[in-house]
Design a protein around this nucleic acid. Structure first.
Lengths: 212, 212
DNA sequence: TCCTTTTGTCACTGTTTGGTGACATCATAT
DNA sequence: ATATGATGTCACCAAACAGTGACAAAAGGA
Protein backbone atom coordinates (compact mmCIF):
# COMPACT_ATOMS: atom_id res chain seq x y z
CA UNK A 1 0.00 0.00 0.00
CA UNK A 2 2.47 2.53 -1.15
CA UNK A 3 0.02 5.00 -2.65
CA UNK A 4 -3.42 4.00 -1.32
CA UNK A 5 -4.84 3.19 -4.72
CA UNK A 6 -8.17 2.31 -3.14
CA UNK A 7 -8.37 5.05 -0.53
CA UNK A 8 -9.87 7.67 -2.78
CA UNK A 9 -12.22 5.92 -5.18
CA UNK A 10 -11.95 8.55 -7.85
CA UNK A 11 -11.30 12.22 -7.92
CA UNK A 12 -13.51 12.28 -10.97
CA UNK A 13 -12.36 15.57 -12.38
CA UNK A 14 -15.56 16.46 -14.19
CA UNK A 15 -16.51 20.03 -13.64
CA UNK A 16 -19.85 20.00 -15.42
CA UNK A 17 -20.91 16.96 -13.44
CA UNK A 18 -19.86 18.54 -10.19
CA UNK A 19 -21.77 21.68 -10.93
CA UNK A 20 -24.87 19.71 -11.74
CA UNK A 21 -24.41 17.61 -8.62
CA UNK A 22 -24.14 20.72 -6.50
CA UNK A 23 -27.28 22.31 -7.93
CA UNK A 24 -29.11 19.01 -7.50
CA UNK A 25 -27.89 18.73 -3.92
CA UNK A 26 -28.94 22.30 -3.25
CA UNK A 27 -32.44 21.55 -4.49
CA UNK A 28 -32.61 18.44 -2.35
CA UNK A 29 -31.44 20.19 0.78
CA UNK A 30 -33.85 23.03 0.18
CA UNK A 31 -36.74 20.64 -0.43
CA UNK A 32 -36.08 18.28 2.44
CA UNK A 33 -34.71 20.49 5.17
CA UNK A 34 -36.17 23.82 4.13
CA UNK A 35 -34.34 27.09 3.87
CA UNK A 36 -33.41 26.96 7.52
CA UNK A 37 -30.71 24.33 7.15
CA UNK A 38 -29.66 25.67 3.79
CA UNK A 39 -25.99 26.57 3.48
CA UNK A 40 -22.69 25.69 1.90
CA UNK A 41 -21.92 22.99 4.41
CA UNK A 42 -25.18 21.12 4.02
CA UNK A 43 -25.12 21.33 0.23
CA UNK A 44 -21.52 20.23 -0.11
CA UNK A 45 -22.10 17.38 2.32
CA UNK A 46 -25.07 16.18 0.32
CA UNK A 47 -23.27 16.55 -3.00
CA UNK A 48 -20.35 14.57 -1.67
CA UNK A 49 -17.71 17.09 -2.57
CA UNK A 50 -15.93 19.97 -0.96
CA UNK A 51 -17.69 23.26 -0.27
CA UNK A 52 -14.81 25.08 -1.84
CA UNK A 53 -16.27 24.16 -5.21
CA UNK A 54 -19.39 26.14 -4.38
CA UNK A 55 -17.29 29.24 -3.98
CA UNK A 56 -15.17 28.50 -7.03
CA UNK A 57 -17.95 27.62 -9.44
CA UNK A 58 -20.87 29.63 -8.12
CA UNK A 59 -19.19 32.40 -6.19
CA UNK A 60 -20.98 31.38 -3.02
CA UNK A 61 -24.43 30.37 -1.99
CA UNK A 62 -25.99 33.24 -3.96
CA UNK A 63 -24.86 31.81 -7.25
CA UNK A 64 -26.21 28.44 -6.26
CA UNK A 65 -29.62 29.93 -5.56
CA UNK A 66 -29.39 31.76 -8.84
CA UNK A 67 -28.83 28.47 -10.63
CA UNK A 68 -31.92 27.06 -8.97
CA UNK A 69 -33.86 30.11 -10.01
CA UNK A 70 -32.80 29.61 -13.59
CA UNK A 71 -34.55 26.22 -13.64
CA UNK A 72 -37.54 27.48 -11.74
CA UNK A 73 -39.63 29.11 -14.42
CA UNK A 74 -39.35 26.02 -16.58
CA UNK A 75 -40.21 23.81 -13.65
CA UNK A 76 -43.41 25.71 -12.96
CA UNK A 77 -44.23 25.66 -16.65
CA UNK A 78 -43.97 21.89 -16.68
CA UNK A 79 -46.43 21.70 -13.84
CA UNK A 80 -48.89 23.91 -15.64
CA UNK A 81 -48.44 22.17 -18.99
CA UNK A 82 -51.31 19.67 -18.50
CA UNK A 83 -53.65 22.63 -18.24
CA UNK A 84 -52.74 23.75 -21.73
CA UNK A 85 -53.86 20.36 -23.02
CA UNK A 86 -57.41 21.18 -21.92
CA UNK A 87 -57.77 23.64 -24.72
CA UNK A 88 -58.43 27.32 -24.56
CA UNK A 89 -60.54 28.55 -21.66
CA UNK A 90 -63.95 29.80 -22.75
CA UNK A 91 -64.13 32.73 -20.36
CA UNK A 92 -61.97 34.90 -18.16
CA UNK A 93 -63.50 33.19 -15.17
CA UNK A 94 -62.35 29.86 -16.47
CA UNK A 95 -58.87 31.22 -17.14
CA UNK A 96 -58.43 32.42 -13.57
CA UNK A 97 -59.92 29.23 -12.17
CA UNK A 98 -57.47 27.13 -14.11
CA UNK A 99 -54.58 29.28 -13.02
CA UNK A 100 -55.56 29.09 -9.36
CA UNK A 101 -56.26 25.37 -9.30
CA UNK A 102 -53.22 24.63 -11.44
CA UNK A 103 -51.03 26.56 -9.07
CA UNK A 104 -52.60 24.74 -6.15
CA UNK A 105 -51.88 21.38 -7.72
CA UNK A 106 -48.33 22.36 -8.66
CA UNK A 107 -47.53 23.47 -5.12
CA UNK A 108 -49.10 20.37 -3.65
CA UNK A 109 -47.04 18.13 -5.87
CA UNK A 110 -43.76 19.96 -5.73
CA UNK A 111 -42.08 20.18 -2.36
CA UNK A 112 -39.32 22.41 -3.70
CA UNK A 113 -41.75 24.96 -5.09
CA UNK A 114 -43.53 24.95 -1.77
CA UNK A 115 -40.36 25.51 0.20
CA UNK A 116 -39.27 28.30 -2.07
CA UNK A 117 -42.65 29.98 -1.75
CA UNK A 118 -42.37 29.78 2.01
CA UNK A 119 -38.89 31.19 1.81
CA UNK A 120 -40.09 34.14 -0.18
CA UNK A 121 -42.41 35.39 2.51
CA UNK A 122 -40.02 34.77 5.39
CA UNK A 123 -36.92 36.43 4.07
CA UNK A 124 -36.51 39.71 2.29
CA UNK A 125 -32.86 39.18 1.48
CA UNK A 126 -31.65 39.69 -2.04
CA UNK A 127 -30.98 35.97 -2.19
CA UNK A 128 -34.66 35.23 -2.54
CA UNK A 129 -35.56 38.02 -4.93
CA UNK A 130 -34.23 36.11 -7.91
CA UNK A 131 -36.37 33.13 -6.98
CA UNK A 132 -39.48 35.24 -6.68
CA UNK A 133 -38.73 36.84 -10.01
CA UNK A 134 -38.26 33.46 -11.67
CA UNK A 135 -41.48 32.09 -10.26
CA UNK A 136 -43.64 35.00 -11.27
CA UNK A 137 -42.00 34.95 -14.68
CA UNK A 138 -43.17 31.36 -15.04
CA UNK A 139 -46.68 32.31 -14.05
CA UNK A 140 -46.83 35.31 -16.34
CA UNK A 141 -45.54 33.20 -19.18
CA UNK A 142 -48.32 30.69 -18.83
CA UNK A 143 -50.99 33.33 -18.50
CA UNK A 144 -49.68 35.13 -21.56
CA UNK A 145 -49.83 31.92 -23.54
CA UNK A 146 -53.33 30.88 -22.64
CA UNK A 147 -55.09 34.16 -22.13
CA UNK A 148 -55.86 34.66 -25.79
CA UNK A 149 -58.14 37.66 -26.11
CA UNK A 150 -60.04 37.07 -22.90
CA UNK A 151 -60.47 40.16 -20.79
CA UNK A 152 -61.87 40.57 -17.29
CA UNK A 153 -65.12 42.40 -16.71
CA UNK A 154 -64.34 46.06 -16.35
CA UNK A 155 -66.26 46.47 -13.11
CA UNK A 156 -63.77 44.56 -11.00
CA UNK A 157 -60.11 45.28 -10.27
CA UNK A 158 -58.87 42.08 -11.83
CA UNK A 159 -55.20 42.58 -10.96
CA UNK A 160 -56.03 43.00 -7.29
CA UNK A 161 -58.54 40.17 -7.22
CA UNK A 162 -56.13 37.78 -8.91
CA UNK A 163 -53.36 38.70 -6.51
CA UNK A 164 -55.69 37.90 -3.63
CA UNK A 165 -56.61 34.57 -5.20
CA UNK A 166 -53.00 33.60 -5.78
CA UNK A 167 -52.10 34.60 -2.25
CA UNK A 168 -54.88 32.41 -0.92
CA UNK A 169 -53.76 29.39 -2.86
CA UNK A 170 -50.13 29.77 -1.90
CA UNK A 171 -50.80 30.27 1.77
CA UNK A 172 -53.33 27.46 1.95
CA UNK A 173 -51.00 24.89 0.42
CA UNK A 174 -47.95 25.95 2.37
CA UNK A 175 -49.71 26.13 5.70
CA UNK A 176 -51.50 22.86 5.11
CA UNK A 177 -48.25 21.09 4.32
CA UNK A 178 -46.95 22.24 7.68
CA UNK A 179 -49.95 21.62 9.86
CA UNK A 180 -52.39 19.43 7.92
CA UNK A 181 -55.10 22.04 8.34
CA UNK A 182 -55.69 25.74 8.12
CA UNK A 183 -58.10 28.00 9.95
CA UNK A 184 -60.13 25.05 11.09
CA UNK A 185 -60.31 23.50 7.65
CA UNK A 186 -58.66 20.07 7.58
CA UNK A 187 -56.46 19.61 4.53
CA UNK A 188 -55.28 16.05 4.51
CA UNK A 189 -57.07 13.72 2.16
CA UNK A 190 -58.35 14.47 -1.28
CA UNK A 191 -61.89 15.11 -0.04
CA UNK A 192 -60.57 17.96 2.09
CA UNK A 193 -58.79 19.44 -0.87
CA UNK A 194 -61.91 19.15 -2.95
CA UNK A 195 -63.57 21.47 -0.47
CA UNK A 196 -60.71 23.93 -0.89
CA UNK A 197 -60.97 23.70 -4.65
CA UNK A 198 -64.70 24.24 -4.43
CA UNK A 199 -64.22 27.35 -2.35
CA UNK A 200 -61.70 28.81 -4.75
CA UNK A 201 -63.93 28.02 -7.70
CA UNK A 202 -66.92 29.59 -5.99
CA UNK A 203 -64.98 32.73 -5.20
CA UNK A 204 -63.59 33.17 -8.68
CA UNK A 205 -66.86 32.28 -10.24
CA UNK A 206 -68.94 34.70 -8.28
CA UNK A 207 -66.56 37.64 -8.38
CA UNK A 208 -66.19 37.55 -12.16
CA UNK A 209 -69.72 36.70 -12.92
CA UNK A 210 -71.51 39.44 -14.81
CA UNK A 211 -74.55 40.34 -12.81
CA UNK A 212 -77.72 41.58 -14.43
CA UNK B 1 -8.97 46.80 40.74
CA UNK B 2 -9.13 43.74 42.82
CA UNK B 3 -12.79 42.90 42.47
CA UNK B 4 -14.33 45.48 40.13
CA UNK B 5 -16.83 46.84 42.66
CA UNK B 6 -18.28 49.20 40.06
CA UNK B 7 -18.28 46.70 37.21
CA UNK B 8 -21.70 45.33 38.03
CA UNK B 9 -24.02 48.28 38.57
CA UNK B 10 -26.74 46.27 40.20
CA UNK B 11 -27.59 42.63 40.33
CA UNK B 12 -31.19 43.64 40.76
CA UNK B 13 -32.45 40.37 42.09
CA UNK B 14 -36.00 40.64 40.86
CA UNK B 15 -37.21 37.44 39.33
CA UNK B 16 -40.55 38.66 38.11
CA UNK B 17 -38.93 41.60 36.41
CA UNK B 18 -36.33 39.40 34.77
CA UNK B 19 -38.94 37.05 33.47
CA UNK B 20 -40.92 39.91 32.01
CA UNK B 21 -37.75 41.40 30.54
CA UNK B 22 -36.90 38.09 28.90
CA UNK B 23 -40.33 37.67 27.34
CA UNK B 24 -40.22 41.26 26.17
CA UNK B 25 -36.78 40.75 24.70
CA UNK B 26 -37.93 37.58 23.00
CA UNK B 27 -40.80 39.44 21.37
CA UNK B 28 -38.48 42.19 20.25
CA UNK B 29 -35.94 39.81 18.77
CA UNK B 30 -38.65 37.88 17.01
CA UNK B 31 -40.23 41.04 15.65
CA UNK B 32 -37.06 42.75 14.53
CA UNK B 33 -34.82 39.93 13.40
CA UNK B 34 -37.42 37.31 12.57
CA UNK B 35 -37.42 33.70 13.65
CA UNK B 36 -34.12 33.11 11.90
CA UNK B 37 -31.99 34.88 14.44
CA UNK B 38 -34.15 33.73 17.31
CA UNK B 39 -32.33 31.86 20.06
CA UNK B 40 -31.19 31.94 23.65
CA UNK B 41 -28.13 34.01 22.92
CA UNK B 42 -29.93 36.76 21.06
CA UNK B 43 -32.74 36.99 23.60
CA UNK B 44 -30.45 37.05 26.62
CA UNK B 45 -28.24 39.64 24.97
CA UNK B 46 -31.22 41.87 24.30
CA UNK B 47 -32.65 41.38 27.77
CA UNK B 48 -29.28 42.27 29.28
CA UNK B 49 -29.02 39.22 31.46
CA UNK B 50 -27.54 35.78 31.30
CA UNK B 51 -29.04 33.08 29.10
CA UNK B 52 -28.91 30.70 32.00
CA UNK B 53 -32.03 32.42 33.30
CA UNK B 54 -33.91 31.32 30.20
CA UNK B 55 -33.17 27.73 31.06
CA UNK B 56 -33.93 28.19 34.71
CA UNK B 57 -37.16 30.12 34.43
CA UNK B 58 -38.54 28.88 31.14
CA UNK B 59 -36.90 25.53 30.67
CA UNK B 60 -35.36 26.66 27.40
CA UNK B 61 -36.47 28.47 24.31
CA UNK B 62 -39.67 26.42 24.13
CA UNK B 63 -40.99 27.85 27.36
CA UNK B 64 -40.16 31.32 26.15
CA UNK B 65 -42.18 30.81 23.01
CA UNK B 66 -44.96 29.40 25.13
CA UNK B 67 -44.99 32.58 27.18
CA UNK B 68 -45.28 34.62 24.02
CA UNK B 69 -48.13 32.41 22.89
CA UNK B 70 -49.95 33.02 26.14
CA UNK B 71 -50.10 36.74 25.37
CA UNK B 72 -50.93 36.22 21.74
CA UNK B 73 -54.64 35.62 21.84
CA UNK B 74 -55.15 38.74 23.90
CA UNK B 75 -52.91 40.72 21.61
CA UNK B 76 -54.94 39.78 18.57
CA UNK B 77 -58.12 40.54 20.47
CA UNK B 78 -56.87 44.03 21.19
CA UNK B 79 -56.28 44.59 17.52
CA UNK B 80 -59.77 43.46 16.67
CA UNK B 81 -61.41 45.40 19.48
CA UNK B 82 -62.09 48.56 17.42
CA UNK B 83 -64.22 46.42 15.16
CA UNK B 84 -66.52 45.54 18.01
CA UNK B 85 -67.18 49.23 18.52
CA UNK B 86 -68.80 49.38 15.10
CA UNK B 87 -71.79 47.53 16.39
CA UNK B 88 -73.14 44.20 15.32
CA UNK B 89 -72.73 43.29 11.68
CA UNK B 90 -76.00 43.28 9.79
CA UNK B 91 -75.24 40.27 7.64
CA UNK B 92 -72.95 37.28 7.43
CA UNK B 93 -71.21 38.95 4.54
CA UNK B 94 -70.47 41.92 6.69
CA UNK B 95 -69.19 39.69 9.47
CA UNK B 96 -66.69 37.98 7.21
CA UNK B 97 -65.67 41.25 5.60
CA UNK B 98 -64.94 42.77 8.98
CA UNK B 99 -62.98 39.73 10.05
CA UNK B 100 -60.89 39.73 6.88
CA UNK B 101 -60.19 43.44 6.83
CA UNK B 102 -59.63 43.52 10.57
CA UNK B 103 -57.10 40.74 10.31
CA UNK B 104 -55.41 42.54 7.44
CA UNK B 105 -55.13 45.72 9.46
CA UNK B 106 -53.89 43.87 12.53
CA UNK B 107 -51.16 42.12 10.58
CA UNK B 108 -50.15 45.33 8.85
CA UNK B 109 -49.83 47.14 12.16
CA UNK B 110 -48.23 44.42 14.21
CA UNK B 111 -44.80 43.29 13.12
CA UNK B 112 -44.70 40.54 15.71
CA UNK B 113 -47.96 39.02 14.56
CA UNK B 114 -46.65 39.11 11.02
CA UNK B 115 -43.41 37.42 11.91
CA UNK B 116 -45.19 34.73 13.86
CA UNK B 117 -47.56 34.10 10.97
CA UNK B 118 -44.59 33.74 8.65
CA UNK B 119 -42.97 31.40 11.12
CA UNK B 120 -46.01 29.20 11.20
CA UNK B 121 -45.85 28.38 7.51
CA UNK B 122 -42.10 27.90 7.43
CA UNK B 123 -41.63 25.59 10.34
CA UNK B 124 -43.64 22.59 11.40
CA UNK B 125 -41.77 22.11 14.66
CA UNK B 126 -43.72 21.71 17.85
CA UNK B 127 -42.35 25.07 18.95
CA UNK B 128 -44.65 26.87 16.59
CA UNK B 129 -47.76 24.81 17.16
CA UNK B 130 -48.57 26.59 20.39
CA UNK B 131 -48.35 29.92 18.62
CA UNK B 132 -50.67 28.79 15.87
CA UNK B 133 -53.10 27.50 18.43
CA UNK B 134 -53.04 30.76 20.36
CA UNK B 135 -53.62 32.82 17.26
CA UNK B 136 -56.54 30.83 15.99
CA UNK B 137 -57.98 30.84 19.49
CA UNK B 138 -57.92 34.62 19.38
CA UNK B 139 -59.67 34.61 16.03
CA UNK B 140 -62.31 32.13 17.07
CA UNK B 141 -62.94 34.11 20.22
CA UNK B 142 -63.68 37.26 18.32
CA UNK B 143 -65.88 35.50 15.80
CA UNK B 144 -67.81 33.82 18.57
CA UNK B 145 -68.40 37.15 20.24
CA UNK B 146 -69.61 39.07 17.24
CA UNK B 147 -71.31 36.42 15.20
CA UNK B 148 -74.58 36.65 17.06
CA UNK B 149 -77.12 34.56 15.22
CA UNK B 150 -75.82 35.27 11.75
CA UNK B 151 -75.47 32.18 9.59
CA UNK B 152 -73.92 31.76 6.18
CA UNK B 153 -76.07 30.93 3.19
CA UNK B 154 -76.41 27.17 3.02
CA UNK B 155 -75.37 26.92 -0.61
CA UNK B 156 -71.72 27.72 0.01
CA UNK B 157 -69.13 25.86 2.07
CA UNK B 158 -68.55 28.75 4.46
CA UNK B 159 -65.78 27.06 6.45
CA UNK B 160 -63.77 26.42 3.31
CA UNK B 161 -64.44 29.83 1.83
CA UNK B 162 -63.47 31.61 5.02
CA UNK B 163 -60.27 29.59 5.28
CA UNK B 164 -59.40 30.67 1.76
CA UNK B 165 -60.13 34.30 2.58
CA UNK B 166 -58.01 34.22 5.71
CA UNK B 167 -55.19 32.55 3.85
CA UNK B 168 -55.32 35.26 1.23
CA UNK B 169 -55.13 38.06 3.76
CA UNK B 170 -52.29 36.51 5.69
CA UNK B 171 -50.20 35.76 2.64
CA UNK B 172 -50.82 39.12 1.07
CA UNK B 173 -49.73 41.07 4.12
CA UNK B 174 -46.72 38.93 4.87
CA UNK B 175 -45.46 38.83 1.32
CA UNK B 176 -46.04 42.54 0.85
CA UNK B 177 -44.05 43.35 3.97
CA UNK B 178 -41.17 41.43 2.49
CA UNK B 179 -41.29 42.62 -1.08
CA UNK B 180 -43.56 45.66 -1.25
CA UNK B 181 -45.70 43.93 -3.83
CA UNK B 182 -47.30 40.63 -4.59
CA UNK B 183 -48.16 38.97 -7.88
CA UNK B 184 -47.73 42.21 -9.75
CA UNK B 185 -49.88 44.19 -7.33
CA UNK B 186 -47.90 46.95 -5.65
CA UNK B 187 -48.60 47.13 -1.92
CA UNK B 188 -46.81 50.16 -0.59
CA UNK B 189 -48.94 53.20 0.01
CA UNK B 190 -52.46 53.33 1.33
CA UNK B 191 -53.96 53.59 -2.16
CA UNK B 192 -52.43 50.23 -3.03
CA UNK B 193 -53.91 48.69 0.07
CA UNK B 194 -57.26 50.17 -0.75
CA UNK B 195 -57.19 48.12 -3.93
CA UNK B 196 -56.45 45.03 -1.90
CA UNK B 197 -59.26 45.80 0.50
CA UNK B 198 -61.58 46.37 -2.43
CA UNK B 199 -60.68 43.01 -3.91
CA UNK B 200 -61.28 41.20 -0.63
CA UNK B 201 -64.57 42.98 -0.15
CA UNK B 202 -65.65 42.17 -3.68
CA UNK B 203 -64.79 38.51 -3.23
CA UNK B 204 -66.58 38.14 0.09
CA UNK B 205 -69.50 40.17 -1.12
CA UNK B 206 -70.08 38.22 -4.27
CA UNK B 207 -69.54 34.75 -2.86
CA UNK B 208 -72.01 35.21 -0.04
CA UNK B 209 -74.51 37.19 -1.98
CA UNK B 210 -77.77 35.33 -2.35
CA UNK B 211 -78.51 35.13 -6.02
CA UNK B 212 -82.03 35.13 -7.34
C1' DT C 1 -26.56 33.23 64.49
C1' DC C 2 -26.16 29.56 60.96
C1' DC C 3 -27.96 27.03 57.14
C1' DT C 4 -30.47 26.62 52.91
C1' DT C 5 -32.44 28.34 48.87
C1' DT C 6 -32.82 31.65 45.38
C1' DT C 7 -30.95 34.73 42.08
C1' DG C 8 -27.58 36.23 38.89
C1' DT C 9 -23.23 35.94 36.42
C1' DC C 10 -19.22 33.86 34.54
C1' DA C 11 -16.61 30.49 32.28
C1' DC C 12 -16.38 26.65 29.83
C1' DT C 13 -17.56 22.69 26.62
C1' DG C 14 -18.63 20.85 22.13
C1' DT C 15 -20.70 21.64 17.79
C1' DT C 16 -21.77 24.03 13.61
C1' DT C 17 -21.28 27.68 10.52
C1' DG C 18 -19.17 30.57 6.58
C1' DG C 19 -14.99 31.34 4.58
C1' DT C 20 -9.96 30.83 3.07
C1' DG C 21 -5.10 29.30 2.24
C1' DA C 22 -2.32 25.46 0.98
C1' DC C 23 -1.43 21.51 -1.51
C1' DA C 24 -1.54 17.41 -4.62
C1' DT C 25 -3.01 16.02 -9.07
C1' DC C 26 -4.29 16.06 -13.80
C1' DA C 27 -4.58 18.34 -18.56
C1' DT C 28 -2.82 21.12 -21.79
C1' DA C 29 -0.07 24.36 -24.28
C1' DT C 30 4.56 25.75 -25.23
C1' DA D 1 10.02 18.07 -21.21
C1' DT D 2 8.26 21.89 -18.84
C1' DA D 3 5.53 25.63 -17.44
C1' DT D 4 0.64 26.93 -16.68
C1' DG D 5 -3.88 26.63 -15.34
C1' DA D 6 -7.79 23.85 -13.89
C1' DT D 7 -9.74 20.60 -10.54
C1' DG D 8 -10.43 18.58 -6.08
C1' DT D 9 -9.51 17.85 -1.21
C1' DC D 10 -7.87 18.94 3.31
C1' DA D 11 -6.91 21.62 7.23
C1' DC D 12 -7.60 25.37 9.37
C1' DC D 13 -9.75 29.94 11.15
C1' DA D 14 -12.93 33.06 13.77
C1' DA D 15 -17.57 33.46 15.05
C1' DA D 16 -21.89 32.00 16.75
C1' DC D 17 -24.56 28.59 18.67
C1' DA D 18 -26.96 25.58 22.62
C1' DG D 19 -26.22 23.90 26.87
C1' DT D 20 -24.07 23.21 31.67
C1' DG D 21 -21.25 23.39 35.96
C1' DA D 22 -19.44 26.40 39.33
C1' DC D 23 -19.55 30.24 42.16
C1' DA D 24 -20.69 34.81 44.67
C1' DA D 25 -24.12 37.32 46.73
C1' DA D 26 -28.50 38.09 48.68
C1' DA D 27 -32.88 36.52 51.10
C1' DG D 28 -35.19 34.09 54.28
C1' DG D 29 -36.14 30.41 57.59
C1' DA D 30 -34.24 27.78 61.70
Amino acid sequence: MSKKPKGQPKPVRDRGGRERALVEAAKQVLAEDGFQGFGVNAVARRAGCDKQLIYRYFGGVEGLVGAIGAELAERLRDHLAPLAAMGRPKSYTELVQRMALGLMQALREDLLLRRITAWEVSDSSALVKSLTAARSRGMALWVGETRGDLVPPAVVDAAAVNAVIIAAVQHLVIAAASAGEFAGLALRDEADWERARGAVKALVNSVYEVRP
